[in-house]
Design a protein around this nucleic acid. Sequence first.
DNA 1: TTACTATAGTTACAAATGCAACTATCTGCA
DNA 2: TGCAGATAGTTGCATTTGTAACTATAGTAA
Lengths: 169, 169
Amino acid sequence: MGNHGKPRCDPKVTATSTQGARERAPLQLENFLPYRLSILSNTVSQGIASDYQQRFALSVTEWRVMAVLARFDGLSARDVAERTAMDKVAVSRALARLVAAGRVDRAIHDDDKRRSVLRLSAGGWLIHDEIAPMARLRERALLHKLTLHERAWLKRILDKLQDGAPVRR
Amino acid sequence: MGNHGKPRCDPKVTATSTQGARERAPLQLENFLPYRLSILSNTVSQGIASDYQQRFALSVTEWRVMAVLARFDGLSARDVAERTAMDKVAVSRALARLVAAGRVDRAIHDDDKRRSVLRLSAGGWLIHDEIAPMARLRERALLHKLTLHERAWLKRILDKLQDGAPVRR
DNA sequence: TTACTATAGTTACAAATGCAACTATCTGCA
DNA sequence: TGCAGATAGTTGCATTTGTAACTATAGTAA
């Protein structure tokens, strides 16, 4: 029962990294790629969100929907879901709020009455035009931590990591 | 009112990238670093979670708590929150479930009765020892998409992006 | 037509999450 | 002592999210 080689270490005295048993040893979260990605992504997204969250009462999902609609006019909800890699239910709800707030106009497709035809409203564009530059600034600040060389590698690496990844729906 | 240079483009006909107006133009989400990080992170975490989610009825937060406890024995809830970069409330709730399920043993600190002293139970270790290798495999599969050179760059880049980042609490 | 299947989008319900308020304990200092 | 913060952890409540079921429309073929 108790034959587990538990790493008994005082947590305050830096991490007795229990190397030795290769597969069995506990993960080192701080070096575990999926974990690091998660932390970094949350930190970054949270930073950007704090720019507009309270100011416009806009959630991250709502902003993402607005961002795609700014780029591609007349998409259906399904298209939006595809382009944002968000769940269709999440998109539906974000759209309900955006339409109610008058930030997005929703029409019905002529040839297919199931589809909606989505478009930023004038008010939506105003908000978009305030947020987009802030988002860009955040990205720039992030990239400024890297050399040009590193930025190029990062892009290449993200491409490779992403390729063949399953697309959510 | 309508003097917005909206990019009218058929979404099916690949992305008329509205370059020109530098700051004003809509974001290209697909090249926007924060967005890419978010997608990648979600995809990866989701993949790992699918390995244990239903099988052990374990949430991502719970697994993370178990992972730190595997590595550092006798932490307090606060320590766990710090090491997982999770909210203390989230940790408290995850612990409540883990203790109830008999996966974590909770004692009270001798010198400070506020603190808990946390430790994986024997059953917790069994589960950990099943999940950890799977998680490692997932990470390995991810890293195998990269050359050794790229892996080194990625590590370096993540370090730089993360440095100076605010620590959640 | 009718029936079967697929798709767009919404709704319902349950679980997860975040924030603020709360209890209990500890620390420091008059 | 005893009182005013701090800190560890939990609880309540409102919001968000995920899953599945549902409605409505479309496509296809007998």
